[in-house]
Every structure is written in structure tokens, then in C-alpha cells.
Write a protein that binds this DNA or RNA. Structure first.
Lengths: 144, 144
DNA sequence: TTTGTTGTAATACTTGACATTACAACAAAG
DNA sequence: CTTTGTTGTAATGTCAAGTATTACAACAAA
């Protein structure tokens, strides 16, 4: 099981918005052509990012823009915005462990904290990387 | 998207094998009743753990056992054994970014290393926890 | 030979990812 | 105030993976 491509697509989209904001209007069509997916996929993604306060999207006239400061947006913010299911739990637990087995009864007591630590390690790394960091890298490659 | 329940089931199974190894024969049926899934799910899981050298399963006479030392088996070993798809990549990338867009062309250059770091943070935390650690916790709850 | 078990194929169901068409809502320009 | 380009979103479809379940051959020990 992998984290869905919505996450990498979202980052791709943010890079494009920032990189081309002075050259052209950023439409879902344009973004879709860079990512190579259907424009509707982009529109839905932009809605999720908008709900999270990461982008602004103009209806009618069209165009997307990044809301606020690049160095205030972390990869975790993006991940959180687009990775919906599971209520924030990285690990999926089996649903009805047998309460009459001493292990089944306590499996959450035994494991939950460990799983939380693992998830926290990943998320804290995500929090340490901002879109600003990514853009700095991106420009290196774009200008060459 | 979440990491499949095979992982938590696998840990649950290992705890049961160890906790009850002196009391009874550990059959797929018994494990299935503690986890509350179909015995075939357990058998398939045990095959994956066996391929990874984590357990031994006796055909015919029946019974599963942990292979080797509890403190040599990490949560990462278990995770790796049962979490098949994606060739070890935690993040799923969109397939055909547009090579004629400077961002699309370089999206892997820009992101791959960052994603690797995030995945490494998670996996290294998993490597730091052994089945021995888990069992120590487990006994606390089981004996009370 | 009987019995209990594992190994595995076959089948089915459900869910989420992702794609696609269609169109109403909307904003700005003419 | 109509045209044009765009967004927002519903409806629909396809596909892959997770999970459940039945059935049975292979097997080991009593």
C-alpha cells in the first residue's frame, strides 16, 4: 500500500503555480498538461488545497495562486490537505480483535503508542520541508 | 491511503505465537480467532513471514513458531515482509509527467530525494523497535 | 488409515484511486 | 447583456488491492 499520487501531484502543482505565475494564467488545463492528468483531477485537488488555505482559485475568470508565504507551507500541510481517508491514521488496524483473547483485548494498548511514534517520525520530517525549500531546488533544475 | 492491516495483523500474530507457545499448539485457526479474520488470511500471512525468515510453520502436524531471536526482529522486518506492492516506495508518483514542461521534466529530480528522506525517517524508526520490545509491553497488559 | 493441519487456487465483494463527460455557476470583456 | 473562458461538481466507469470465503490436495503424525 502506498500513499496516493495525489500528494506528489499536489506538490507538482504548487511548483508549477509558483514557477509560472508571472508568465501566464494558471488554469486547471495548464496544470493538467504538465502533470499529465485530466483537468478535473486538478480542479478537485485545488479544492482540497483551497480548503486547507494553501491556494486561492478564481472562479469564472480563472487562475490559481498560492496563498500566503512559501516558507510557511510544509510538505505535511500539503499531505494533510490531500490525503483524506483514515482520519489521519497512517496504519490501518484490523477491526474486531477478539476481546476474549488476552492479546486481542490489549492489542491497541500494546501497539498504538508505537505506531504513533512511527507516524510522528514521518510527519515531523515532512514538517521540516517547506515549499520554499522545494522551489529553491526546483529553480536549479529549471534554469539549466 | 493507509498502510494495510496486514502489518498490524502480523504483529498481533507474532505476539500470540510468542505468548502462547508453551500453552498450546499455534494453529492458523487459533490465530485467526484472536485476530478475528479468516484462517486463510493468517496462512497467507504466515507464508509471507516465513519467506522473510521470521517464522517457521509446520505443515501436516501443524503449528507456527518464531524463527530466531525476538530482539533481532524489528517492526521494519515485519513491515517489509507483508507490505508487498510499490517495490518499497512509500510514495506513489504520477506516471507520465509532461517532459516538455520544465517542471514535469524535472519533477523526479526535484522530489525524489526529499521523499526518500521522509520514508527513511519512518523506516528508521521502525528499525528501532524490536518484537522483544513489543513483547515486554505485551506482558504488562496480559498479566493484569 | 485416520485425523488435523497447512498451502494454495478459485471466486467474490468492497473500496479507493483515477479518468472522463457533461454542465451549471460564474466573472470579465466586448 | 451576451459571449467567452473558466471553475465547481455530479454522474459514471474502470481498475487494482484488500479482504473474505470455500474447497481441496499435500502432508505429518498418531
Amino acid at each position: 500500500m502506498q500513499i496516493s499520487s495525489r500528494f506528489t501531484i499536489a506538490v507538482h502543482v504548487l511548483i508549477c503555480i509558483e514557477a509560472f505565475k508571472n508568465e501566464r494564467k494558471i488554469t486547471s488545463e495548464f496544470l493538467a498538461s504538465s502533470v499529465n492528468v485530466n483537468p478535473v483531477v486538478i480542479r478537485r485537488l485545488l479544492q482540497q488545497l483551497k480548503k486547507a488555505g494553501i491556494v486561492e482559485v478564481k472562479r469564472g475568470s480563472g487562475g490559481a495562486d498560492i496563498a500566503g508565504n512559501l516558507s510557511d507551507i510544509t510538505l505535511f500541510d500539503v499531505y494533510n490537505a490531500v490525503e483524506s481517508v483514515g482520519e489521519g491514521q497512517l496504519f490501518h488496524f484490523h477491526d474486531n480483535p477478539n476481546p476474549r483473547c488476552p492479546v486481542g483485548k490489549n492489542i491497541h494498548n500494546i501497539m498504538d503508542e508505537r505506531l504513533r511514534e512511527i507516524q510522528e517520525a514521518m510527519e515531523s520530517r515532512m514538517r521540516s520541508i517547506t515549499i520554499k525549500n522545494i522551489m529553491d531546488d526546483a529553480y536549479q533544475y529549471i534554469n539549466s
